Computed example of a mutant assay.
Amino acid sequence: MNTPRGARRTDTTLSDGRQLIYYDPADTPVRVPLEDTRGLPAPKPQVELRTDPLTGDVITYATHRNTRTYLPPADQCPLCATKPGNPTEIPDHDYNVAVFENRFPSFAGPGRAEVVCFTSDHNKSFTDLSQGEARLVVEAWADRSAELRARLDVEYVFPFENRGREIGVTLSHPHGQIYAYPFLPPRINNLLARAREHQEVAGSNLFADVLAAERKEGTRIIAENENWTAFVPEAARWPVEVHLYPHRQLAGIADLSTTERDDFAQLYLDVLRRFDGLYGDRLPYIAAWHEAPVRVDRELGYLHLELLSIRRAADKIKYLAGSESGMGAFISDTRPEDVAETLRKVGS
């Protein structure tokens, strides 16, 4: 078991044997976990991996997920703290950050799927967290990433958050997930191939050079601090897309220094609040951490977070049409420089 740098970790198990971990501020009293009284049967996930012979992509079939909980009313939320009449995945009256094995996992056997609850407050969003609360989530991400990377059945660790029904969220409680893939996802394979080509030609890291070019050019930068820069990428695919890069090349979240974790929490909250200020309500988004692979080509990776929204106007959604879905060729209605300027003005 890891010892998080800036948090107190408490491990326990749910009634069906799944792991549950609480993360509390380091200066809080020791947590005594309460028992999960639900008496759940042992999970029996049905997961099958197949490789597409045309592309080499691995496709996961997880048929048990078709019965997972779907948009329950707030008083029946399985991610809230347990209350009389509503025993939940977190068998305690309150919590700060909680991580548990997904009851309906996308991966099982090889790989692992976890749920990360950012707060016990059902009505909050990550945007509403204080910097200290956001910082505690970073500690949980770092701790879980390090532990999952050590598993022999894991090739890639992917912490992420989906927010908003438009994205496909099935539980409205503020939470994210961590997928520990037993293979390299297609996007990472593509990025690594480009990074390998760049390394051979330029002799330098592709991601570091992209960051340096954005910081030098300047027009697409949204915000920055001593250790991080947030910018709209030059060839953004999505209507609203911002990447957050640390100023030094790192493999994973666990490699961030204390100051870098502090600065990330500050900048990330800043960017999320700009997102919500764009149209005056909560913008649906996907927040996707990109770490280096666990074993292969680690030197080519560069830790960063990609934040994107499918909303192209206050009342319009960017749906993947024929070109995007059929050919993977994106056609955008928004220009990166214009999006960057708008997001800068939102925060001014």
Rank of each mutant, 00 (worst) to 15 (best):
V346H: 06
T258A: 15
R298Y: 02
A236H: 11
R163C: 00
P53D: 15
T60P: 09
L250D: 04
A140N: 07
R165D: 13
R187C: 06
T3S: 00
Q76E: 02
R31E: 00
L20E: 03
D333E: 13
F107G: 07
V30T: 09
H64F: 06
A74L: 00
Y95I: 03
L40A: 06
A230W: 11
T10W: 00
A108S: 13
T127A: 12
C77Q: 00
G132R: 06
L34E: 04
K83N: 09
A235H: 06
N190G: 09
A62T: 11
H243N: 13
D333Q: 09
L191K: 15
R196M: 13
Q19N: 02
T229N: 14
S257E: 08
Q131P: 07
R8V: 01
V242S: 13
V116A: 05
A150C: 05
E48P: 10
W238C: 06
A313N: 11
L256F: 09
I222A: 09
E260L: 00
Y279V: 11
V58K: 04
R273L: 02
G176Y: 13
A208V: 05
L191C: 11
Q19E: 03
Y268V: 10
R298L: 08
S325M: 15
T55A: 01
Y245S: 08
K216E: 14
R344E: 00
T69C: 14
D75Q: 05
V47L: 11
E133Q: 13
F275Y: 14
I222H: 14
D24L: 01
R237A: 15
R344S: 04
F330M: 12
K318W: 04
L54R: 15
R220P: 02
D270C: 07
F104E: 06
G168W: 01
P45G: 08
Y319T: 01
D315Y: 04
E197T: 15
L305C: 14
P4F: 06
R68C: 10
T12Y: 00
L14P: 04
K216P: 10
A7I: 00
V242E: 14
P29W: 05
A212Y: 09
V296T: 14
D270K: 07
A251F: 01
E324G: 07
L192M: 10
F107E: 14
N190S: 06
N66H: 09
Y156E: 05
F264T: 04
A7V: 02
Y23E: 13
E260V: 05
E337P: 03
T55D: 02
Y268S: 13
T63G: 10
L343E: 08
I178N: 00
K318Q: 06
P72N: 08
R31L: 02
N66C: 15
A230D: 09
G39T: 01
N96K: 13
V210H: 12
W141G: 08
F107C: 12
L211A: 11
A340H: 10
R149V: 06
E291W: 05
P174T: 10
E260Q: 05
G109C: 14
L54A: 11
T88Y: 02
H175M: 08
R149F: 07
R298F: 05
N205K: 14
S15V: 06
Y181M: 09
N227W: 09
N190D: 11
D281L: 08
E217N: 15
G109Y: 12
D121S: 08
I286T: 11
N66S: 12
S309L: 07
P25F: 03
A223G: 06
G176A: 07
V97W: 03
Q199R: 15
A142H: 03
A213W: 08
A98T: 01
P182K: 12
G203W: 02
